[in-house]
Design a protein around this nucleic acid. Sequence first.
RNA 1: GCUGGGAUGGCGGAGUGGACAAUCGCAUCAGUCUGUAAAACUGACGCCCGACAGGGCUACCCAGGUUCGAAUCCUGGUCCCAGCA
Length: 429
Amino acid sequence: MPDFSFKVTGYDPFSRARTGIISTPHGKIETPGFIPVGTQATVKSLTPKELKGLGIPMFFVNTYHIYLRPGTDVIARFGGLHKFMGWDAPVITDSGGFQVFSLNRKKYVNTAISEFAVLDREKFTRNGTLKGRSDGVFPDDYRPVGELVRIDRDGVSFTSHWDGTEHRFTPEISMSVQNILGSDIMIAFDECAPYPTTREYSAAAVGRTHSWLTRSIAAWEKNNVRRKNKPYQALYGVVQGSTFKDQRIESAKFVSAAHTDGIAIGGVSVGESKKEMENVLSWCMPNLPEDKPRHLLGVGEIDDIFTLVRHGIDTFDCVQPTRLARMGHLFVNNQIIKSNNQKQKWTIDINKTEYKYDTKPLDRRCSCYTCRNFSRSYLHHLFRVRELLAYRLATIHNLCFVTRLLAEIRKAISRGSLGQLERAWLKSQ
RNA sequence: GCUGGGAUGGCGGAGUGGACAAUCGCAUCAGUCUGUAAAACUGACGCCCGACAGGGCUACCCAGGUUCGAAUCCUGGUCCCAGCA
């Protein structure tokens, strides 16, 4: 049975970029490849058939979310996510490690009113964060509550964001849940530290991540023995270390030495600058083995894509294309728009009134279903009235856009013209 | 025609003597979004000056009036709605 393999098929002569093919029991992934996120066992708004039509090779499902809803007992009845979702191509599952970060944001409540009071609207955003206080300072009457995450040496306790029930994740639990999910690629349970953080905290998080990797591997090996006739599940270890060079290098070496099928880099795109993120890559990548695939967790803005490919990343996942699509921010080729802060953008906001009478397609050069059949005016209308089709057409377009960019990148690497392609796309200033 | 109710910012709709340039929702405008607590969130939203603090002007149907002070009370109009003729 074809287990899991990775073959490098070409190198860019001017950078660390490379092309390759990842083989899994459910199919192959050409690299560098973009992996869209389908947190709740669906890439929001699209069918598996549509995803395949867009050339999506694999998508990313979140173990934490599926564990909570619908629950592993449901997935077990289907023998795994593939059958449950009606998707027969590869699936990668996250470990729940990112929720250690994302669910850990502080919320506040006025204790003078009530322990669990509805948040004071004057002082709080609807998300429960304090208005105008990104520094975390809050008045005496207020104390942080609803921290949904408590981390200890052994694992992490979560309060469900759905119903407030308590749950515990450890490396063993994460592995066993992912085992039931039956993903082709699993991610070892890790801790994604917040940014900014102290050198000391980050070191502790790296320590936990490493010890959890060792435990993840042990659990994984046991599970693989038990699985017998079931498809092989690959495991990726996660490199952490925030923006500290020595910690990143140490972590890269540790994870590289571990017995895994691939390596993921985590703890980036959590608030640090793009320059810092590139630094992290430059510290990690030279310390990773050539023969294992490398995944970058949670990165994928257009300019980032070139950065990560140049540094030798093979796959990466990101919510950006699908989330922006649902917000009406649609990728447009060769149209460079600068926002107020002079940051380069590749999207137009179809909600803007300027598109009301725009009978042109979104992107004349795009051959996706959306661009072939609909005008900007129609898309503008669908978004303004919040019709469901808006999200579908937008997601189709944005995913098509990114997928096509990656195809161009693979071609450019094999031709040795990646640098030119990047310059053409990032003709900034 | 009589009786009762009502007219508030682009719209809906609070407020019923000072904390009101006026809660809130919608709409509008601007911004944010990177392993998705996200079909989300944040901010602005009468006019003018100001980077901010703040200041000035005009405002709650119209016209008078009471009051230190009126969107709020009184008088007279105009218009709208409901019931009865």
